[in-house]
Design a protein around this nucleic acid. Sequence first.
RNA 1: GCCGGAGUGGCGGAAUGGUAGACGCGCACGACUCAAAAUCGUGUAUCGAAAGGUGUGAGAGUUCAAGUCUCUCCUCCGGCACCA
Length: 955
Amino acid sequence: MKSYDHEKIDKELEKKWQESGIYKTKEFPESKKVYILDMFPYPSGEGLHVGHPKGYIATDIYSRFKRMNGFDVLHPMGWDAFGLPAEQFALKNKVHPRAAVEKNIANFKSQLANIGLDYDWSREINTTDPEFYKWTQWIFTKMYEKGLAYESNEPINWCPTCKTGLANEDVENGECERCHTPVEKKPIRQWVLKITDYADRLIKDLDELNWPEGIKLAQKNWIGKSEGAEFTFNLTGISGQHHGEHNVKIFTTRSDTIFGVTYVAISPLLANSWLNMGWKANADVKSFIDELLEERKITEKDYSIIPEKKGIFTNIYAQNPANGEKVPVWIANYVLGGVGTGAIMAVPAHDERDFEFAKKYNLPIKEVIRPYVIDTVNSPRDDKKTVTRTNVHAIVYDPKNKKYLILRNQKHGWDTVVIGGIEEGEDLIEAAKREIKEETGYIDIEFKRKLGDPVQAGYFAAHKDENRISISTGLYFELIGDTQVPIAEDEGNEILWIDEKDFVPGKMINSELPFWLERLKFKQDFAYTGTGIVVNSNQYDGMESGDAKEKIVNDLGGVKVKKYKLEDWVFARQRYWGEPFPVVRDEEDKVYMVDDSELPVILPEVESYEPTGNGESPLADIKEWVEVKGFITEEGKFKSSPEGKIFKRETNTMPQWAGSSWYYLRFADPHNTNTLIDKSIEKAWLPVDVYVGGDHATRHLIYARFWHKFLYDIGVVSTIEPFSRLEFLGFILAEDGRKMSKRWGNVINPDDVVKEYGADTLRVYEMFMAPFDQTASWSTTSIKGSDKFLDRVFALKGKIAGESEVQSMLHKTIKKVGEDIESFKFNTAVSQMMILVNEMEKASFTKEDYISLLKILAPFAPHITEYIWGEMGESASVHKSNWPKYDEKFLMEEIVTITLQIGGKMRGTYEIPRDSDEKTALEGAQKHEIYQKYVGDKIPEKVIYVQNRLINIVI
RNA sequence: GCCGGAGUGGCGGAAUGGUAGACGCGCACGACUCAAAAUCGUGUAUCGAAAGGUGUGAGAGUUCAAGUCUCUCCUCCGGCACCA
């Protein structure tokens, strides 16, 4: 039985807080401001499960904490209610989406209220409110004016189930992310936003954001910038009436490998367009193209299929602009039509895909990049001359004893493989065998294989006092007999057989060793895709990859190009429940933006809002809405007028992500009818200081950043990024480890938890159960610990005494809880308060101590702390009190416990006064029986003393 | 395949390079109770009778000292996926 009635307390206090308006945000911050924001929810019909409020509880704690520290806090909440989910819910339940949304919002609000969240509801916003979407439409017109919104008829992703076009971001593995139907390519008229114009800035500005690195990286990958160049290869042998240019453009990021091109490969799509332009290919080629195009249709639907590489020679040749060489042009299925120019220069020696293809069709492989390592231990020295040597590295392995043969240089202590130069008339293998014999005496060895092309290394050779550039070929031998002849010349080397575990970089001096090991272990035959020194490339020989890239592009007529994986944002949906576009067309189909004075363009009420599926929105059927009379103003905008001509409205609607791309601005100035946000208010409250939510790593968070940057460019906002800090939350799974879902019958409703344990217990448990950013499973038993904890806090009230024995722990706790809230480590904050409460139960404490505990617990458990606060006769509200200050002097104990280690092992502890010097600490240790036992009268070899912590006696 | 993140008791998890397992759940025993629940107390990594040994996915390394730093490998989760 609980010692307090949580149901009664919760209800009374929530009512009190609402009435007194203690969470009302000021229009302008008067002191330091903090804007803390949750990713606003889509109010689904299912209501909340216990996972949903986790982020809201965290922001609630954070904002209460900040408020107690003197900040003016903006902590609002609203609803992202347009879009497919709401519409589908409405269709299923045969209600109007607006009615469904209103009902769901009411339900959500009551559920949130149960948890004691401190939102200022006077700032509530809703993306489906015309006063809100007026500004969504307004932003669109500005984008159009700046050339960032355009119409396109290019084929786009189409979901046949949802009956709408989709953005790339809405497609997962070739399926619609909502219903998992394979998407099709369908050419329909679309509004598209030019997000690619902002691609560079979206990458660059990530640097300054305090976001989880993983999210930043995901965005970088999604934008997928690659810098390279386009080269033109002239074609010969292209027959027929091909009326295109007789050349092909290729895109590459590795211009430094252009001398290694041994064929050109084009995509089936490009081949097909050549056919359409009159290329007379032979029948085999034609049917092969058809085959590949068919295959592509399948792999576009199922992205998990990566078909075997195949191709066909076209009888066409392409001339390499670098060396004039004519190389065959192939059609290859691994070259994608939609990427780059749809054609590549193939460099099998340095690209794995080209390598695989070249192997299959017996195409030549030409090495042009040589791996290059600079020795980090014996780095080349500026003041020494440099000598280039070509040599062999003999790796000799004894399979019987599983050992490698090495030489240990006595003078320098180096371990090295057998290395030797190549003498006149010798081949590599002969040279290696001779060296092995001369330096180790072994003669019964068998050559197994060559370890790829040479590797170049730069190092300082101390024994010769010169820098060496060494171009080495690795050769692998196995020992077949023990016969050893006398060594020809003794260079002071010890001949050793060592274990595999010692034949590793770090133990061996050879900086080429990683290459040899990799080639020994994994790849007999491979493409080297790294960078290095350019070889076999005429005047570029000897340059480093990076320099060669630059120079080759400039010299050989390359055109520098930046490419992105990110594509422009397909912004129209052929559905009802979204923001209408502020767009009309005249009879010649010319497009006009609606004049600002006409905004918002209100979404009309309709009887049937089912999607048509023919690429038209349901709005197209409402003639009285679609047709509107008006005229075009001098600024080229549409204004309605009963006397005007007939125009037709755009009938697509905006996607779900439109409103959420800027909603955070509106919270700062939610009722402004003149402008999106007042300039001075924007300057005062923005940016969002802490943004909390999950999911959306690449969609919402890229779209919102894009819109924000645009609004910055047109002077609406004054910061280049919307969300300074992002805290990503981990989800709460059901007790069975699965997602909570009606389908599994494992949903835990927060209302039930609140009823059984109270809101505070729910809050404390959700914060305590795991680190905030980590996914964790709900536990119906573990929550009892949090419940018990609050009960014990309550019980402590009767134990207040006149003197305090808990000062040190209390101040330590104040410090830690504050720091942990600041860094979103709520689980350890709770645990620290538990430690304090445990101590308070055992020791005596004062009223002041107890008040401090209530204050630091208040953000986590606002109801019970406020209740006790009142019972104790304190005035006002605990939530209006100041965060207690901790005093450094209580953090330091007078007597410290020293860990006694003998030889690095923990053997015991003892106590000495704080800040004792080493002598005192050692004396303390020597008194210890453990010391006597392990050390006795022996003189320690070394004593390591870490003040106030530990002493380590090495013997 | 590539890029991230993570592997610690029966479970959730804690640990500025310095006593591994804090805190909580669970469990065991005890108290209270006719009894149970609730509550409180004690114990709880592992092997060992003990002394002591062993332990943070596996293996190496650096260090007086490694869960923590370095390398190799394994497993799980997330993202991207023939991007030239």
